[in-house]
Design a protein around this nucleic acid. Structure first.
Lengths: 344, 344
DNA sequence: GTGAAAGCGCTAACAT
DNA sequence: ATGTTAGCGCTTTCAC
């Protein structure tokens, strides 16, 4: 049989409360008593039953993380960083994949989080958008990630999409490129608050600031942001005959696909076309040529998100703080694809 | 206040038992009663408290998955597949990262699994080896993954390392290569049971079967299996002047690094050197050139592992089945790096 | 077909 | 500094 606190108490010759005190590092326990309890725990191989503790305390020590899929590099790296951050707070992370499925995202947002033994939820939507923000229930500790929904009732950690995209474009302009293509714009016409639209805005801003006209022929809509689609968009652009000497891909995966298509077409990078991506996934350092990118501050995002969630979990019921919007710092990482040597 | 079963029972005008029956789909409930209970649940926004259920039933509905790190592509894809497989059994997955740290792997194996509200643990070691198999406690539902430990006291899901590596090497031989290099062998001399050694064995087996002598100069030790190390090993090999026309990299990440080094050195793939990797990560399809690889049956591994774990969880205490060793089916995936057209 | 009541293992008043 | 005790919300005999 699995030993309980009672068994430990009996073996140690103390009461169950003392065992609890020892386990929870309560200050007022005599060293000798503590030792006896600890050796009883050792002897019996006792492990606290976390379900019972959770029932009693109302805390499970586990938070949920809902992402589209881990096989998408960005989310694997995000999950990695979040699990590390949660660990510092002694929290476990239950990972749920929504597979970019609207219904599953709704399920994750509306209580399935509470349904899964978790104290709070970090949610990175891929389908839900601005119109769905009413679905978010501010009652359960919840932190929103990404840039599909703004102005929701909960804390939100995101990145400086517009200004970092502008900086990426300026980086290309800075090395003398004038005909800068963009792939990854959203197919829908109506302007929504979404990574794609925000980044396109930054791109246009940079061009305008430099007095370069925006050429609609250079802007290619691509969805979803997969390698094959990046490659295809690039093949289309090359085939169109529209001249260009720079490329801003709205994420690294698209950029990597584009790199592949450029290579196939015999276009030299960065000589003929300089390329910059977005996200700075690990892989960017090792492609041929290595890929310049925007580091959106993934680590900072992870740490901030976990910290905010922990604060919400610890928040007294009486005094709910207003929802916070946090944007992480970004950084342009110049590599070979924009002419910077080495493969750092 | 959060509603409980009692509240639902009161609103529905039934007893708490009836509510429980409805929630757990017990057969003997009158349809009209069921309806009343369901609408009471709806009205109150009731959600069962899983801590309480877990305490009572001894099950949490969550399993643990301990892997080195999700930022390693292979493990992200493994975790992805496992979460999907677990979902079919209505299980959540708590992901723990051991960061390739021995102490943390030991912690994961020895009860930390039980400490984390989980019903069982899937464990993929990176540091623990054959000598540590006594640490594995057969009492807690546990399934071992990978090939670092064999003959342990628990179920184990692994791949056909030797025969699939042999098949990979035969694939290179089949397209006429005779001087086949290998990168990724383990630096240690003493033969251990480990992916590297098993795959090297398959490589040698294929060469011997084809009557090709094994040239130690062509076998390069590399650890850990990162891109940069693959690239470095390849640069070394090229610099050594030892001629070769084929390369078997013991995983795709190494192969991708090697591809990069070959490209830098102006060596054409597959014309001068044909390359095959191992793991068939998503990225292999999109490198330049696309990378031939061995698909070790990741999906099958994930599904089998979860099924075995579920069986162990459901096992009556009385009749423990002997530990099972399962090997998944593999498949050679031929792409451009070994001369097969297209980028499938 | 439904109700009453015990108890899973733990924490936190409260008492000593 | 340590012991006693009452639940946390649920499942599960056992009656009815």
């Amino acid at each position: 049989m699995i030993p309980t606190m009672h068994d430990v108490a009996r073996v140690a010759g103390v009461s169950i409360k003392t065992v609890s005190n020892v386990i929870n590092d309560f200050p007022h326990v005599r060293p000798s008593t503590r030792m006896r309890v600890l050796s009883a725990i050792e002897e019996l191989g006792y492990r606290p039953n976390l379900s019972a503790r959770g029932l009693r305390s109302g805390r499970t020590g586990v938070i949920g993380l809902a992402v589209p899929e881990l096989r998408q590099n960005y989310f694997a790296e995000l999950a990695d960083a979040i699990i590390r951050a949660a660990e510092k707070h002694d929290l476990g992370v239950l990972v749920e994949q929504t597979s970019g499925d609207r219904e599953r995202e709704i399920a994750a947002v509306t209580g399935a989080g509470r349904l899964r033994l978790t104290d709070g939820l970090l949610f990175s939507p891929q389908r839900l958008g601005q119109d769905d923000r009413h679905l978010i229930q501010p009652r359960f500790p919840f932190v929103l990630l990404g840039e599909r929904i703004f102005g929701g009732p909960t804390d939100h950690v995101t990145m400086h999409n517009v200004s970092s995209a502008q900086a990426a474009t300026e980086h290309l302009i800075g090395i003398g490129r004038r005909r800068i293509a963009l792939i990854g714009a959203h197919p829908d016409r109506r302007e929504e608050i979404r990574s794609a639209d925000l980044r396109v805005r930054g791109y246009k801003g940079a061009l305008e600031a430099a007095g370069i006209p925006v050429d609609p022929q250079l802007i290619r809509a691509v969805a979803p942001w997969h390698r094959e689609n990046g490659a295809e968009a690039m093949r289309d652009l090359i085939a169109s005959g529209v001249p260009f000497d720079g490329l801003f891909a709205l994420n690294d995966t698209l950029a990597l696909g584009a790199l592949r298509a450029l290579g196939d077409a015999g276009v030299r990078v960065p000589d003929d076309v300089a390329v910059i991506g977005f996200d700075d996934i690990d892989e960017a350092r090792f492609s041929v040529p290595s890929l310049s990118s925007v580091d959106p501050g993934r680590q900072e995002i992870a740490e901030t998100a976990v910290e905010l969630l922990v604060e919400r979990i610890n928040e007294k019921d009486g005094e709910p703080l207003p929802p916070l919007l946090v944007k992480s710092k970004f950084r342009i990482v110049a590599r070979e694809s924009t002419g910077s040597g080495g493969s750092s």
